[in-house]
Amino acid sequence: MAGPIVETVGVTKIYNRGKPNEVTAVKDASLKINEGSLAVLKGPSGSGKTTMLSVIGCLTAPTRGEVVILGKKVSKLPEKFRNQHKRNHIGFIFQHFQLIGDMSVLDNIVLPLLPEGISPKKRNKRADRLLEQFNLTHRRHFKVRSLSGGEQQRVAIARALINNAGILLADEPTAHLDSKLTGDLLDYIRQLKEAGHTILITSHDPIIYQNPMADQVFEMKDAHIISS
């Protein structure tokens, strides 16, 4: 297996700093995720998993510490460069999918490509491949809000992959799925891993963190990484 593609060094994240509702969501967390591996960040609700994922996914900057992605220290980068790095290398699958419900499946999938200046023809071609891969071609022009939970999750995965990102972050991907859909999701994860993606999943679902596919498992509790 190759060396670390994602690394955090002493990351701390404090929300509402200096205010009465100040919360330390992650404290002094360090981890290394190897290229091509499937890593799982497990722990109970409120342990800081999602915040850790947000920091690694460049959705928020750490209060202290460093995040290194593909050898680049991203946490101190100006927003524009950080976003560029994110668009180029990271795909994010959110817990509640975070799709725009009154837009079509196709429009949701191609959203990350719009600021890149990709023409409709090119982006639709890329999207069509993903629609086919995730069995969504027949839903191409459907409004997302009319889809089932499983279909919405596939749309979210397709959107995360539209930029050819090498790193995929997924926040509690099985939280809203039944056992059949969880099985389907594991199949997709397997395919993505086999395709060479580095995947980091937060979950408190044993089916994920006890899965033999998982190469690395980090455990979080009370804002700390307690084991890896």
């Binding site: 996914g57 668009r87 994010f92 600021p115």
Partner: peptide
Amino acid sequence: GILKAIGWD
């Protein structure tokens, strides 16, 4: 928030 999260500046 979604647009920012998926990388829009």
